[in-house]
Amino acid sequence: MSRIIAGAAGGTPLANVPGSLTRPTTDRVKEALFSRLDAFGVIAGARVLDLYAGSGALGAESGSRGAGTVDLVEFDAKASAVCQRNADLVNGLLGRKVVTVHRSKVESFLERAEDAASWDLVFLDPPYPLDEPALSAVLGKLADHLAPAALVVVERSSRSPEPGWPAGVERFAEKKYGETRLWFAEPAVPDAIGPDTVLDGQEPGRP
């Protein structure tokens, strides 16, 4: 059973999506990922977006650790219902509404997002059948909605190729955990900005 690892709701069991509709992030990978995010200092107060949310475990973990808002985007009806259960659980423990569920296709959600909408931390854990061109297209739509110092985490099979990064998003690190590989990316720095420039709010220690 999946659980929230740390924060205000630490140790709380989460509902899982029945069957094999989704590929949940293991607690081992989740713990390693959030340890890194804590080191970057990107969670507290962050606007978090969890695309292809599955059970919403990554968004729930973010909410527990102090994110300001969390948007879970999941199209499958059963998975979306589980997201809602977990969102209600976290919101109840926090005593306020932090996590919001959107039953929508990821592409449609990003297309409908207001021009001013932006997120500080984004998770993408797409299903294996989503091919690289389709993933790259989603990342391209996402690029217009990233805060200047945003961090994007893409979770894929360790056998999958590196995502095709569109203009506006660039990879700065990757990490393999058994059958899982995490890709870390951020908004591309415009050519007019020097490579040593630190944008407002960006962690200077980020590779």
Rank of each mutant, 00 (worst) to 15 (best):
M1I: 11
R3D: 10
I4C: 10
I4Q: 10
G7L: 12
G11Y: 15
L14H: 07
L14F: 05
A15G: 00
N16L: 11
P18L: 02
G19I: 07
S20G: 06
L21W: 00
R23F: 06
T25I: 15
D27F: 13
V29T: 12
K30Y: 10
R36D: 03
L37C: 06
L37F: 09
V42E: 07
V42Y: 07
A46S: 15
R47A: 12
L51Q: 04
Y52D: 00
A53W: 04
S55M: 04
L58D: 03
L58V: 05
L58F: 08
A60P: 07
E61C: 12
G63S: 10
G63A: 13
G63K: 07
S64T: 11
R65E: 14
A67D: 09
G68C: 03
G68P: 02
T69R: 14
T69G: 09
V70G: 04
D71Y: 08
D71N: 10
L72E: 03
V73H: 04
V73F: 03
E74I: 00
D76G: 08
A77Q: 10
A79P: 00
A79N: 01
V82L: 01
A87I: 04
D88K: 05
D88Y: 02
L89Q: 10
G92M: 06
L93P: 07
L93S: 09
L93H: 07
L94Y: 09
L94E: 07
R96K: 14
K97S: 13
V98W: 02
V99L: 11
V101G: 02
H102R: 10
H102T: 01
H102N: 00
R103S: 01
S104T: 02
S104L: 00
V106K: 02
S108A: 14
S108R: 10
S108W: 01
F109P: 00
L110G: 03
E111R: 12
A113P: 02
A116I: 05
A116L: 05
L121Q: 04
D125T: 13
P127G: 04
Y128N: 06
P129Y: 08
P129Q: 02
L130S: 06
P133S: 15
P133Q: 12
A134V: 07
L135E: 09
V138F: 05
L139I: 13
A147P: 01
A147W: 05
A147S: 14
L151A: 08
L151H: 13
V152R: 00
E155K: 13
R156I: 12
R156S: 13
S158K: 11
E162R: 12
W165I: 10
P166G: 04
E170A: 12
E170I: 09
R171M: 14
R171Q: 15
F172H: 11
A173F: 09
E174I: 00
E174M: 06
E174A: 07
K176W: 03
E179Q: 14
T180A: 13
A185M: 10
P187F: 07
P187T: 03
V189F: 07
V189H: 06
D191G: 08
G194E: 11
G194A: 15
D196H: 15
T197C: 14
L199W: 14
L199I: 14
Q202V: 14
